[in-house]
Design a protein around this nucleic acid. Structure first.
Length: 585
DNA sequence: GTAGGGTTAG
């Protein structure tokens, strides 16, 4: 500003380039007032500024988020080139005004201005809807701009975000020369679409091609570790995270990895070490504590957040309600549910209602839960009903379970777990005709039940055990060991629980196969392979059944081991004959 | 003077 003042004082008028430098200076310092002053000065210059200078001004207003001023300036420009148009399109894309961005692309075309790589990489981010995307992709290929790395990474990203991961991969695969961001785009695409395996494979290939990982790469790699529950690999990535210790997003991903991999000590350490924490950090930590059975701590952390942290959002409250429902804190849950709107202006959504239904159902208040469903502002969906079905399972309410299962199947006729449960209920009530009917429907619908599968990480390898499969090389040894173990814990009071009414939500319920449930095999493998001081960490695809839960508690006690089992919803930490869930899951 | 990638739930 001093520069401009002295120019003016001495009677000089700045030329376009000087003005442009001044404007850039204002933008970088976020000096809105001065920027507007320069604009005034430019206009009082007596002659019409060139398009180049106007574009700089346009960019300034966009960066200051003054879209009205930007639009006014743009409309009044006698001549608009590709930079003018692209600046506007980019602004609209950033503000998620997708329709405006696409409209401007059409308008610039009508004015005879040809889009360049800047235009395409901007407009791609605003492209929702596959037909638009296909159309745009064709135009890009026609202009030959698909070889540009910016366009390419934008294409990969938008395809993957539109659920067309394979198309995104094809764009990546056709690449001759790429850069780090293109790699990050494709690794991130697989990590975000829960294909951790492929994300990690690509990461290896990237390193072999000579690229060094940066913050974005490591964030995606951590996310891949999280979705595969690979704690040891996650720890190795942690070593590289230290280089970027001030990166908030990366640290949040690290925190989430430790929470989801069930290593709460590491998570707490990561949380306390962070130099900066945003609403995501707090929400992740609260949900992580809740998921691992530390509900009281989760609520305490939430109280601390209210006093010293950022304003809670929709997801934070979900974690809080989740904590309440998993520990049976009915009163706390009602308090948080009723006060979320008043305290933080958050309207309860379907998921919040879901947590409340879960809470009421677990606490045995099934009537209240149903009343609550009817009072919901949104229509109950399959997830809502499945929550209630879980409560019927815990509280052995057969009639309600049948009713609820039918509601689910109306909405999701492919839900294998619900069919199995329904057929079990009928079988147990000797309603054989109904059993036949359910089996027939499953056949007609082509529904197949997912086999129970558990896996454990050992020596940098994942060892998987699938019910009814003998593919693991040491399966015979594991089975022998399991039989001996069962003998040992029977002496400590283990009685196999064959009462499987409503016991299993999703299969694995044959009495004779109870003994070979995948988590039992994985536990035995852990006992055989890991040293005594290491906790046995197991992941599984279905929820743990009552019998395996008792089994794990007794093994932990008799063998003096810590066992950690992650099912699709939460963690069970078994130690000294007890589980962190307090038998409440 | 204009452009691309990464974090919490479901």
């Amino acid at each position: 500003m001093n520069a401009m003042n002295s120019l003016q004082k001495h009677g000089f008028w700045a030329d376009s380039i000087t003005y442009s430098e001044l404007i850039k200076c204002c933008v970088s310092r976020g000096a809105v007032k001065e920027g507007k002053l320069v604009h005034k000065h430019v206009c009082s210059n007596g002659y019409e500024p060139k398009t180049f200078l106007k574009n700089t001004l346009l960019n300034m207003y966009v960066k200051f988020n003054l879209m009205d001023e930007a639009k006014k300036l743009f409309d009044e420009m006698p001549e608009r080139n590709v930079v003018s148009w692209t600046t506007m399109i980019s602004a609209y894309s950033n503000s998620k005004l997708n329709d405006e961005a696409l409209k401007f692309l059409i308008l610039m075309h009508r004015e005879g201005v040809r889009p360049n790589m800047f235009t395409f990489s901007s407009v791609l981010r605003a492209c929702d809807g596959l037909s638009n995307l296909r159309h745009l992709h064709c135009s890009i290929i026609k202009t030959g701009l698909d070889s540009d790395v910016f366009v390419r990474s934008a294409l990969i990203d938008i395809y993957s975000k539109s659920g067309e991961l394979q198309k995104g991969f094809r764009v990546f695969d056709e690449m001759v020369t790429g850069d780090l961001v293109v790699w990050n785009s494709i690794i991130g695409a697989f990590a975000q679409n829960s294909d951790g395996d492929e994300a990690l494979n690509l990461f290896k290939t990237m390193k072999r091609s000579g690229f060094l990982a940066n913050q974005a790469t490591l964030t995606s790699v951590l996310r891949a570790c999280t979705c595969l529950v690979l704690l040891e690999l996650g720890r190795q990535v942690h070593v590289h995270v230290v280089k970027f210790e001030r990166d908030l997003i990366l640290n949040n991903a690290l925190l989430d990895m430790y929470c989801k991999c069930g290593s709460l000590d590491d998570a707490k350490a990561a949380f306390s070490r962070m130099s900066e924490r945003d609403v995501i950090s707090w929400s992740t930590m609260i949900a992580g504590l809740a998921q691992n059975g530390y509900s009281r701590e989760a609520l305490e952390l939430f109280e601390l957040m209210k006093v010293t942290g950022p304003t809670p959002n929709y997801i934070t409250i979900l974690g809080v309600l989740f904590a309440c429902s998993h520990a049976g804190f009915v009163e706390d849950a009602w308090y948080h549910f009723r006060s979320m709107k008043k305290l933080f202006g958050i309207d309860p959504g379907r998921e919040h209602y879901g947590c409340m239904i879960d809470l009421l159902g677990r606490a045995g208040k099934l009537e209240e839960a149903i009343k609550f469903i009817h009072e919901m502002e949104c229509e109950p969906d399959a997830v809502t009903w499945r929550t209630l079905l879980g409560a019927c399972r815990v509280h052995q309410n057969v009639d309600l379970a049948i009713y609820v299962a039918k509601q689910i199947l109306k909405l999701e006729p492919q839900d294998a777990g619900t069919y199995i449960l329904l057929s079990n209920i009928y079988a147990n009530s000797q309603r054989w005709e109904d059993v036949v009917e359910v089996r027939k429907t499953m056949k007609v619908q082509g529904v197949r039940k997912e086999p129970g599968c558990s896996w454990i990480e050992f020596n940098k390898q994942v060892h998987a055990f699938v019910l009814g499969e003998k593919s693991h090389p040491q399966i015979d040894e594991v089975n022998r060991e399991l039989n001996q173990l069962i003998q040992r814990i029977m002496e400590a009071g283990y009685i196999p629980d064959t009462s499987f009414v409503l016991q299993d939500l999703e299969g694995e319920q044959k009495v004779d196969s109870l003994r070979y449930h995948s988590e039992k095999l994985a536990i035995v493998f852990g006992l055989m392979s890991l040293s005594n001081d290491k906790p046995i960490r197991i992941m599984k695809n279905l929820r743990i059944c009552g019998d395996c839960h008792v089994f794990a508690k007794l093994v932990a006690k008799v063998e003096h081991r810590t066992i950690v089992i992650r099912d699709p919803i939460r963690y069970h930490h078994f130690k000294d004959g007890a589980c962190s869930c307090g038998d409440y899951w």
